[in-house]
């Protein structure tokens, strides 16, 4: 059979040479194990799984030291002190809050308070620029790199229009959350260019809090507008109440497009185009590999996002709406 002879020759020695070719570390016990501190906000998540699995599939020996603040940011100072003491090879920080706490905003870095001398990778930050973590997506020049998990608006709109033609689009959002507002601004701009009529429904703010009792009414108010899709921006408040108002939408036969994985989970949203937390974790692992193994300075690496996203379609909802997925989407969608 083909290349059998070559293959038998290669099997033993090839690994190391190949490793070099594919930017892999050299095998062998003589190499040190990389020590990585992982700082998270609320326990072990999918992102952390992705990060851990990346090293496993790449066979990079790492020692992961997990520190969780359990939603209590006051614990962070102690963890930072411990890290400064332990001097690991890399620090992995999860979420906007932890990231700002550990490495500081780009214009307010205090070497006394923040970690500056250990390479740090931030992950699960939805808006690294908006939150002030970095100035832009260019290489930081600091000992820091990271990723964003936002899916570009054009890709999201294109996912909707590929599913069914979109002429009228409704959006419900939380005017109190920066992320949400930014997303709707961009949505407004894009839909205008594409000639899609946008119907905006901001959630009324009562006592400084978005009023969850108004959600069903907002959905119903969009029914007479004959919208083709209801768009839900990434927003923790909306994610929390997704089940309720997506059910209302389904009752009125409105297909819902969700921009965040949280909104899709356990809801009646029809579809979403998202960056999987698991893949975001793998991306962080890839960045860590380049820092640790390939010895590229973190400050020389740009802030990246995924290049391919996961299209998730709820086939039960599709069936109920009588909107079966187009054949082309069936080829690459995840049907849940």
């Amino acid at each position: 059979m083909i290349k059998v002879s070559r293959r038998t020759l290669m099997t033993g020695a090839a690994g190391a040479a190949l490793g070099a070719a594919a930017a892999l570390p050299a095998f062998g016990a003589e190499r040190n194990v990389f020590r990585i501190y992982m700082v998270t906000l609320r326990g072990w998540t999918d992102t952390d799984d992705g990060f851990r699995d990346y090293f496993e599939t790449r066979r990079i020996p790492v020692q992961l030291i997990h520190r969780d603040v359990n939603r209590d940011m006051s614990k962070l100072a102690g963890i930072i002190a411990e890290i400064k003491q332990a001097k690991p090879h890399l620090v992995y920080v999860w979420g906007t809050g932890i990231s700002i706490g550990v490495i500081g905003k780009h214009n307010a870095i205090d070497p006394a308070k923040h970690i500056t001398d250990i390479p740090t990778v931030f992950t699960n930050v939805s808006s690294p620029i908006g939150s002030g973590l970095v100035k832009d997506l260019e290489p930081t020049g600091r000992n820091v790199t990271g990723s964003t998990f936002l899916v570009p608006m054009t890709a999201q709109i294109s996912a909707m229009t590929s599913y069914r033609p979109v002429n009228r689009l409704g959006v419900i959002f939380n005017p109190d959350e920066q992320n949400s507002v930014e997303t709707v601004d961009e949505l407004r701009e894009r839909t205008q260019v594409m000639g899609i009529k946008l119907f905006e429904r901001p959630i009324p703010i009562v006592d400084g809090e978005p009023d969850k009792t108004t959600l069903r009414g907002l959905v119903e108010s969009l029914v007479p507008e004959k919208i083709d899709f209801l768009y839900i921006p990434p927003d923790s408040f909306l994610s929390k109440h997704a089940r309720d108002f997506t059910h209302a939408a389904l009752e009125h036969r409105l297909p819902t497009f969700a921009a965040a994985e949280g909104t899709l989970k356990d809801s009646y949203a029809l579809m979403g185009l998202i960056s999987r937390y698991y893949n975001i974790g793998k991306l962080a692992g890839y960045q860590a590999e380049r820092i640790l193994v390939n010895r590229i300075a973190p400050g020389a690496m740009p802030i990246e996002g995924l290049t391919r996203y996961s299209l998730i379609i709820n086939k039960e909802v599709a069936k109920e709406l009588d909107l079966v997925p187009p054949m082309l989407m069936l080829r690459f969608a995840e049907l849940s």
């Binding site: 079966v324 997925p325 187009p326 054949m327 082309l328 989407m329 069936l330 080829r331």
Partner: peptide, 25 residues
């Protein structure tokens, strides 16, 4: 195989959507 895949996910043959675009591709 693609059509069978759709059928196995509960999409009946006569309800397939976007077949022309798929075949074009």
């Amino acid at each position: 195989r693609q059509v069978a895949f759709a059928a196995e996910h509960g999409i009946p043959f006569e309800k397939l959507y976007g077949v022309e675009a798929f075949l074009d591709q």
